[in-house]
Amino acid sequence: MNAHTPPPVSAGTAPVVALRNVHKSFGPLKVLDGVSFEVARGEVTVLIGRSGSGKSTALRCIDRFETIDSGEIEVCGLRVDNPQLDLRALRLDVGIVFQSYNLFPHLTIEENITLAPHSVKKVPKREAKTLAARVLEQVGLGDKLHAYPEQLSGGQQQRAAIARSLAMQPKVMLFDEVTSALDPELTGEVLKVIEALAADGMTMVMVTHEMGFARGIADQVVFMHRGKVHEAGPADILSSPATPELAQFVGTGL
């Protein structure tokens, strides 16, 4: 577990990710209505909330897959809301993993992983392959280098997708319901990988419906409701919610 070495904490206490009063609408639909939260280095922030509450949109705004209407987003010192943002620089710092793995089906797992380091960071092919072997080992897929995505189970594909992101050595990882498409047995193996990453000091923002997991891993829980941060705090808020909405949400176990 050493693909990711957290940078020295000497850089002060500036948050790795900060959203400040972020607003975002799709047409007439207000999806983010003044969202603010911060993610400190090495911490895990878990976004929870009902379907449609804006969790995915918030994540996508952080990685500039959506542009915001107003407010500020800062990631590793980069102003994401700046129209002149250097997208490449942002995406070197941020890794994102989606629910539907999105491995490239025509490439082997090794090629999936080496593609970005080689073509974006210009890491020589050979080094990139060594790197691929290392990150695959890290997610427990050391023997799948030469397999194609369709030859892997859903859980294995998702772990490979995580490895692909890790190979770019991001400073923060975003996970959007990465286990939602998986059977319960396969969910566990993916969550274990994420747990290990957290233990290794990776800064993460994740959307998940796995409440037990969230409780165990979260340094901060952000409960979103109707496009707003309705309640936020340490993992304890899941056991003793302050708002009836969160109480109801946790109660339903959704």
Binding site: D63, F65, R88, R91, L92, V94, G95, I96, F98, S100, N102, L103, F104, L115, A116, S119, V120, K121, A161, R164, S165, M168
Partner: peptide, 12 residues
């Protein structure tokens, strides 16, 4: 999703 995954990895 394929395109977003690639963009997310920093590809131009």
């Amino acid at each position: 999703g394929q395109i977003e995954a690639a963009e997310g990895l920093g590809l131009s």
